[in-house]
Structure formats: structure tokens, C-alpha cells
Design a protein around this nucleic acid. Structure first.
Lengths: 231, 231
DNA sequence: GCAAGAATAATCGTATACGATAAGGACATT
DNA sequence: AATGTCCTTATCGTATACGATTATTCTTGC
């Protein structure tokens, strides 16, 4: 069954986005229009708007007349996104602290537990995704869908940053960070929660390796290192 | 000179966006693809992605197989956008208060002065735009471009809301609100600034008429009222 | 005279076709 | 042998063409 259904634009968008966020498409990778069109069984006419949309989300970079590539955010952009998260999510956690009800606390704790389970299971991909999802869950406590989408967008961009700059041995987010955030929210101390959030995001940033050059693009030498030097 | 240059996608996007935000294109108005294509001297192929981009920004609504229209945000969405602004801009003004330097204060005061000048000049369109621009200027104090873009997006959506729901006699934003915000920032009292921001945005919301139905779409009867009833 | 249905017209969504631009390789030159 | 230039090829960006769906109008019956 090569093509069961035509597949809607949003589905194609979600599919490509998830592939990138899950790391199945590495930063710098080429996203050919005809190639993707064949993958999804549609013409490149349908692919084009999706690529543009991903470009607006800063997940994809379009180089004129050259094509679309999975974005490789610069160190400056990485810092900017993290700083933006500090600013926005401070407002989020303050609002969440003010709005939090017992059921929200249990929901958040459950999300952390699930994240921990995935991590101990060794499923780093799922764990990483849950890490981002926790922040969305936090935004959801505010009861505001607009904020949730904003946070989701920022978290997506940050996922790319992590994929590019995380240290090889690093397992990801600081382990106890999220549990601590929940405690602060549950205590109702808005300032403490905001403080914890800022430092949590700073910790994430500090765990990255922004000093050296970005993880090399999947280009040539690295991709074909198993062949050895032939000449 | 019908078509001097082909005009880039971003230019077309900016042009349509400004037309909507300036109120030259009222909420609910039809945005035909061929029609816009003729306006900008290009084919509808170029118009389509722009319309989709505006749809992602919630400035335009696309009804499948019917066409694109200037968005008419519902009352629920209006409340959600305003609530989101309260959450996000609380974080923004806190960061701005922490980062503010004397030059920033003078810049902000200058922005308010310009806004007041436009208002006393009777240029409500420019005044309204400056009102939004002030909040972007505030975000710029944080030195973070990502945050500026986020705020700009929210402000754009709010502009549509105001265009739809503002009371006929209302002149717009509360006059002294912005000056008060600057005072709080200059004082360095982060909590006071945050508090002022939340109430400022609540005041804007309160000045709207969300009880009744939305401003009627510019459809038929209104557009051709100058012809009188013919039949 | 009015309402319901059918035919026409207009517009959207998608695919295909074509010109333009940049990458990759062959050949000539130093 | 290495480098620079030209040519071929592949891919992007845009326009045009066509099928599908909806709005409008005209006709017909009540």
C-alpha cells in the first residue's frame, strides 16, 4: 500500500517536526522537496508550505535556490532562546503557582514520574521528549492555550539546540529540577518558584557545550568515517 | 509602471499584515488569492504561502474550499490572548526592570511622547500602532530578540481584537498607563512593575465591549449602503 | 409571488510544466 | 599534478492548467 490516504498538511507538518525533534533528522540535513514529496506520496506543491511553516518556527532553514535544511541554531541563537524561555516561563510559573490546584500538582508529578521511567528504561528519546512536555504541562496549568503554544514553540527550538550542543556523556535535563519546581509551586511561594525556574533553565544551558564549535554537520568525513581514508 | 519589481514574499507579507493592523482591511474581509495576486502583480502561487503564514499568526482564517478572510477572533480567543499577554509580559517587564539602564528609560519615555503626539494630532491609526509598539519597545529592553518577536506576535493578535471589540467612543489605550509602567521600571521595584503591567492589560481588556456581539462583518449591506435600497 | 431545485459561474486546491540558479564533473591550462 | 573554467545535471522557484467544491442565478412548480 504505497499511498493509502492523501494525508493532510498538518499531518505532514507534524511528521517532519517529530522526525526532527526525535533526532531522526539531524541538524543540517537536507530536506529535498521532491524527495519529501515522494516520501509522503504527494507533489512538492504540498511540501513547500510545510517547509515554510517550519522555517517560521525556526526549525528549518531555507537557503534561497539551494533548498531547505534542518536548522543549526548558532550559539547566539541558542543563548537567546534560553534567555527567552527564562523570561517567558518565569511569567508562566508565576501564573501557574497562582492558579495551581491539587489536581494540577498530581498531574505534574505524574508527568515527572513518567519522564523518570523513560529515563531509567534507557529510552533517551522518549525521556527527552517528556522533558519538553513537562514544561508544556506546566503552561497548561495556567489554563491558557495561547501560552501553551508559545511555550511549545520555544521548547521545540530548544530541543534543536540540545541536539546540537549537548555534551556526549550528558544524559539530558538535570534530574531533580522538575520535581523541585513542583514543590515550589505546591508551596505557593511565587517568588521561589520563579527563582527555581530561572536557575533550572540556566542549569540546562550550563550543561551544554557552547564553547567549542557546534556538533559537526553530518557531512562527508563523519558520515563515511567507517570507510577509512582511501587516498 | 504597473510592476516595477517582483516584490519578495516577506514584503508581500508585511504589506498585507500592515493593511490589516492599520484597519484598512477589516476583520471578516475576504482575501481572494487571484485578487491579491493582481494587486501585487504576481500569481496566486506566491500569495498562498503568505496567507498560510498569516493563518499561523492567527491574523487570517482559512475556511477550506471557501477562501481566506481577515480573522475575527472570538470572545474566548480575545480573553485568551489578553491573558497570555498578562502572563508573558509579566515576565518581560520583570526582566526589563532588572536590565533597565537610564538610556532605556529615556527611549521608553520618548516612545510614549510620540504616542501622545500622534493621539493629540488625531491620528488614531498611528496612535494605535504606537501603543502596540511601546510594548515591543519594552521587550527590547530585555535585549532579547526572540522575546521581542513573541511580544510582537501577541500584540498583533490583540490589535485585531481591539479592532473588533473596541467601543465606538473609546480612544484606545488608557492614557497614563504606559507612563506609569515606565515609572515603576525606573524605580526598580520589580513586583510593582509586574503588578502594574497586569492591571494595565486588564484595563485594556475592560475597555472593550465583549458583552455584545462582535462588530458586524463588512458585508454587503454596510459596504454598499451608499447605494441605498434599490429593490 | 415565493420557494425549491438545477445549471452556471467563480474560486479554491493540487498537479504538472518550465525557466532560473547553483552544485558537480570534465577538460584545458599552468 | 593542481587549479581554474566551462558544461552538464539536478533542484529550486514561479506560472499556468485542470479538477473539485461552493456560491450565485435562473428556471420551474406551487
Amino acid at each position: 500500500m504505497p499511498d493509502s490516504k492523501p494525508m493532510t498538511d498538518d499531518e505532514i507538518h507534524r511528521e517532519i517536526l517529530e522526525a526532527i525533534l526525535d533526532g531522526r533528522l539531524a541538524p543540517g540535513e537536507k530536506l529535498g522537496q521532491d524527495e519529501l514529496g515522494k516520501v509522503f506520496g504527494v507533489s512538492k506543491t504540498r511540501i513547500r508550505p510545510v517547509l515554510h511553516r517550519l522555517t517560521d518556527q525556526k526549525i528549518v532553514t531555507i537557503e534561497p535556490m539551494r533548498g531547505a535544511f534542518v536548522a543549526r541554531p548558532s550559539v547566539e541563537e541558542a543563548r537567546a532562546v534560553n534567555a527567552a524561555r527564562q523570561i517567558v516561563e518565569e511569567g508562566v510559573i508565576r501564573a501557574a503557582t497562582r492558579a495551581a490546584q491539587p489536581k494540577h500538582i498530581t498531574q505534574l508529578r505524574e508527568a515527572v514520574a513518567e519522564e523518570q521511567r523513560a529515563r531509567s528504561r534507557g529510552d533517551t528519546g522518549q525521556a527527552h521528549r517528556m522533558t519538553g512536555e513537562f514544561h508544556c504541562e506546566l503552561a497548561r496549568v495556567t489554563g491558557n492555550d495561547v501560552v501553551v503554544e508559545l511555550v511549545r514553540e520555544l521548547v521545540s527550538r530548544d530541543s534543536l539546540v540540545v541536539a546540537l550542543y549537548q555534551r556526549p556523556a550528558s544524559s539530558g535535563c538535570s534530574l531533580g529540577g522538575h520535581a523541585d519546581l513542583i514543590d515550589k509551586i505546591a508551596s505557593g511561594d511565587e517568588d521561589a518558584a520563579a527563582h527555581a525556574m530561572r536557575h533550572h533553565l540556566q542549569d540546562v544551558m550550563a550543561s551544554l557545550d557552547l564553547g567549542g564549535e557546534a556538533r559537526k554537520a553530518p557531512s562527508l568525513a563523519a558520515a563515511f568515517s567507517h570507510l577509512g581514508n582511501r587516498r
